[in-house]
Design a protein around this nucleic acid. Structure first.
Lengths: 242, 242
DNA sequence: GCCACTCCTTGACCTTTGTCAATTCAAATA
DNA sequence: TATTTGAATTGACAAAGGTCAAGGAGTGGC
C-alpha cells in the first residue's frame, strides 16, 4: 500500500530505527498506524495504561505533567524522527507524562509489545536503545544545569542556537518551531517573562525578531551571551555530529 | 586476599552489578582498585580523558560542572552502591562532569574497557544498563519538574521525604547525609536561601531541626506541603520497590 | 472584509531568590 | 581547654521572575 510505504520511510528516518534491519522495520510498519492530530489534541495522559508508543512523522508534541493545582511542567517537546511514550516500558507500562500535539502533526503509533519483544530478542537493538537513552540523559543533565545557571534571556538565546544550522557560521535566520508560549513553557518560564526576556536579548545581542522569525547577524555575539553561563562551549557537542 | 573479597562484596552490593554473574564480578574485582578519598578531594574534572569509572563503596561524591565565571551546577550526588563516570562511554570517553568527594569516601575504580567489553559481548548486561539508565532518566525528568514547580522550602521537604525510611509511616528522624551547603547546591539554591527556606519549612510543617538531624512527627503534613507542587503522589514510585 | 479567537505584549505590582557583609556556631586540632 | 577553621545563620538590600489586568496584533472562518 501507499500508506505502508510512507510508514516504512518515516520509521527508517527515525533516530531510534535508522540502523534497524529492513525486516524489523517492515514488522513495525505492519503493526503501526499513522494518525493525523490537530493542534491541541491530547494523545494520552499521565498515568494512563500504556499499550503503544509513538513516532512523530511531522509536527510537534508537548510532553508534560500537571500538579493538583493545575500547574504544568514540560518534560520535553518532540518532533520528526523522535519517539515518545516508549519509556513506559521501564515504568510498568504506565505513561509518566501526558502528550499533546501543539502543532498539526502526523504521528505513528506502534505497540509497545513489539519493542518489548525486540528488547528480549535483539541484543543489537538493546544497544541502540541504550545509546539513545544515554544521549537523552546527557541532554537532561544539561537542561538542569541551564535552569540553575542561565537567566531567562540566556535560555532563549541557547534555545535559538540549537536551531541554527551548524554549517553556516555567519548570518542566519531561524524560525521558532512552535508558538512562543510553548517555547516559554519548554524553557520553564511564563509567557510574560519570555516576552520581556526576548526584548532584553534583542537589545543585548542585536538579533532582530519578526514574529516567529529571528535574524541573527552575529552568531558569535549570541553564543558569547548565552554560553557564558553554561559549562559547555558553543557549538554544543551533541549538535555537531548530526 | 582480604581486599579482593571486600571489592567483591561491594560490587555485588551495587545497583549496576547485583544481578551479574560471579565470573563477571570476579573479573571486575580483579581489575578494580579501591582508594580512600578525603573530603574535598577532586577525582577528575570535566573534559578529562576517561579511562576508568567509579563505584562508591561508602561516602558521598558530588558530580558537577563549572562555567567560565566560576558558577557551579550540581549534576548529581552519588553514594554507596552507585556508579559515576560510566556515562563517558557514550561521550567519546570524555567525562561530562567533575567529581569531588564531599565526605570521606571509599571508592572503587574500574577500567571503562571492562564495561565496554561487557557491552559488546554480554546482551544481558546491556539490558541491565538500559534499565539503569532509564530509571536515571526518569529521575532527571522529575528533577527538572521540581525546579520549575516547587519553591525552595518544598524542594527541601521533598529531599527529606526521599531520605525517610518508607516502612515507618508515623514519626521518624532523618539525618542529612552531607553538609547543608551541599544539600543547597544539589537542590539548586544558595546556602542562604536554604537556611531561610528551612526555617519556613519548620514553621509550616512542624518539623524540628537539630543540626543535621530532622525530627518529623507528621509525615503526612510534610508530604502534603512538598508534594502539592509535584505531579507525583507521595510516596514516590521510584522509592517504593527498593 | 469583518468577526472571533488566540497569541503576544505591556504596565504595575508582588514574591522569591540572590548578594554581600557581619556574626554565630560547631567541629577539629593543637 | 583554647584556638582555629569552615559551616551556618541573619540582616539589609538588589535583582529576577511571577501575577494580574488590559490592550494590541495576527490569523482563520464565515
Amino acid at each position: 500500500m501507499k500508506t505502508d510505504h510512507q510508514l516504512q520511510v518515516a520509521i527508517k528516518d527515525s533516530i531510534l530505527f535508522r540502523d534497524s534491519s529492513d525486516a524489523f522495520i517492515s514488522k513495525i510498519a505492519a503493526k503501526g498506524s499513522m494518525t493525523h492530530y490537530k493542534k491541541g489534541k491530547i494523545l494520552f495522559v499521565h498515568e494512563d495504561q500504556a499499550k503503544r508508543f509513538f513516532l512523530v512523522k511531522n509536527g510537534w508534541v508537548k510532553l508534560f505533567r500537571e500538579t493538583l493545582d493545575g500547574e504544568q511542567a514540560v518534560v520535553d517537546m518532540v518532533t520528526s524522527g523522535q519517539t515518545f511514550g516508549e519509556a513506559a516500558l521501564f515504568q510498568d507500562n504506565i505513561y509518566t507524562y501526558s502528550a499533546e500535539a501543539i502543532e498539526a502533526s502526523d504521528i505513528i503509533s506502534i505497540p509497545l509489545s513489539l519493542l518489548q519483544f525486540e528488547i528480549d530478542n535483539n541484543p543489537k537493538f538493546v544497544k541502540t536503545l541504550l545509546f539513545y537513552n544515554a544521549s537523552i540523559r546527557q541532554l537532561k543533565d544539561k537542561e538542569i544545569e541551564h535552569r540553575s545557571l542561565q537567566n531567562a534571556s540566556q535560555r532563549i538565546g541557547c534555545f535559538m542556537l540549537r536551531l541554527v544550522d551548524q554549517e553556516k557560521l555567519g548570518k542566519t535566520n531561524i524560525h521558532l518551531p512552535y508558538d512562543k508560549m510553548f517555547v516559554a513553557a519548554k524553557l520553564g518560564m511564563k509567557p510574560e517573562t519570555f516576552s520581556r526576556a526576548l526584548k532584553r536579548l534583542k537589545k543585548d545581542t542585536k538579533i532582530r525578531v519578526k514574529g516567529a522569525t529571528i535574524e541573527i547577524d552575529n552568531l558569535q555575539q549570541l553564543s558569547d551571551y548565552a554560553c557564558r553561563a553554561c559549562s559547555f562551549e558553543f557549538p554544543c557537542a551533541d549538535l555537531k555530529k548530526d
